[in-house]
Design a binder for these strands. Structure first.
Lengths: 202, 202
DNA sequence: CAAATTTTTGTACGCTCATACAATTTTTTA
DNA sequence: TAAAAAATTGTATGAGCGTACAAAAATTTG
């Protein structure tokens, strides 16, 4: 009962913050805006949260989960490692999210995470997960020595495409970004590497 | 006389803003901090500039010129198109600038440019210059159809490496970023393309 | 239903900041 | 050198913000 209403309100505020985040980025998030977006009165935030930063923290986790769900959904349906790698790439560019406001919002989170230790920890966690996912797809295909470089290259490409979507007024679509990255990955792995990955594992 | 002192003060303020920018990013720039960094009293800014945003505008131009000078210097010494392409890549990662604070500062500029039309225009200008530079190196080597994709890929890689330097606590050095990008470019152009570019042009 | 408790509202406080400007100092002019 | 102009200082003003909290409303309890 008490537990329940508290959880509900907290969740509503987090989701309100998420919607405001997508539109205005982290800097555009004010306590008033968050509360308004959640349909509550301005003072309520400090009743359910210790501070605005705490809402931000949970909001970012929520935002990341949205993307990770896209990745997980596609990975589940992937029959082999090559398809799993594609699932990672494609899952990082959901059509409905790959537009300028959202890209800018994510970018603003990157900037904020440089000065907020809490957000920085999240940032690292997200990156570790991505790196681990990529690694598991190509272990054995890419040599142990080349693995870190391969992983970093893919990560750089993914983040770079988001950055370009945000800042350069490039009309790149979700499909365009996926094609760009896939093309680079194909060159790195080579035809033999890819066909090896296509053998249904497990 | 009047002209001279005015230009000097404006330049000092712009350079003060630049130093503060490198350390604290765009959001950390306050009028007081800019004036202090320039060794002047806090009110002076509104005497020599219409607003803080005007200082920001000129500061960003200044900051970009620092990078462009690095590129230009290297291009001048390049005997052929392949070396010119390397000059562009290397010039975008000056050793003294490729560290976290500076990378974050640039990132914060990208974010700010999404909401400030003046900064957005600069952003586009910078990108056009980069794209044009890259194009001129590989025209004739990369087919006309593949050219936009090639240019975008290189641009994404450059920006992506800066983003990673800023946000992911990657220990990537300047040399590491250059190697990563060069490696990708070599794969795209192939051995025959590169050797064609190495013939001394002009 | 009355008292106690929880939830919500609206606002006031303190802080940071950009900007404008009156007062002061420095430099130029005649 | 005295008057005028230019340059600089320091501060006041007002806006936007996060947070705390007293008062009010809603809900639960006995």
């Amino acid at each position: 009962m008490k537990r329940s209403i508290e959880d509900i309100r907290r969740q509503e505020l987090i989701e309100g913050a998420y919607r405001a985040f997508l539109q205005h980025g982290i800097d555009g998030l004010t306590t008033a805006r968050i509360c308004k977006e959640a349909g509550m009165s301005p003072g309520i935030l400090s009743y359910y949260f210790k501070s605005k930063d705490e809402v931000l923290f949970w909001m970012v986790r929520h935002a990341n989960r949205v993307i990770m769900d896209e990745v997980a959904k596609r990975m589940k349906a992937a029959p082999n490692r090559w398809e799993r790698l594609l699932a990672i790439i494609e899952g990082n560019f959901p059509k409905s999210l790959f537009e300028q406001n959202t890209a800018n919002a994510w970018l603003s989170f990157y900037v904020a995470s440089a000065r907020d230790p809490q957000l920085e920890r999240l940032q690292r966690l997200f990156h570790r997960r991505l790196a681990s996912n990529i690694s598991s797809c190509v272990s054995g295909i890419v040599s142990r020595a080349d693995l870190p470089g391969f992983v970093e290259t893919v990560a750089v490409l993914i983040d770079g495409c988001w950055l370009h979507r945000a800042a350069i007024h490039s009309q790149t679509t979700s499909a365009g970004a996926i094609a760009l990255i896939t093309n680079q990955v194909e060159q790195l792995l080579g035809a033999t590497g890819i066909s090896a990955m296509k053998k249904p594992a497990k």
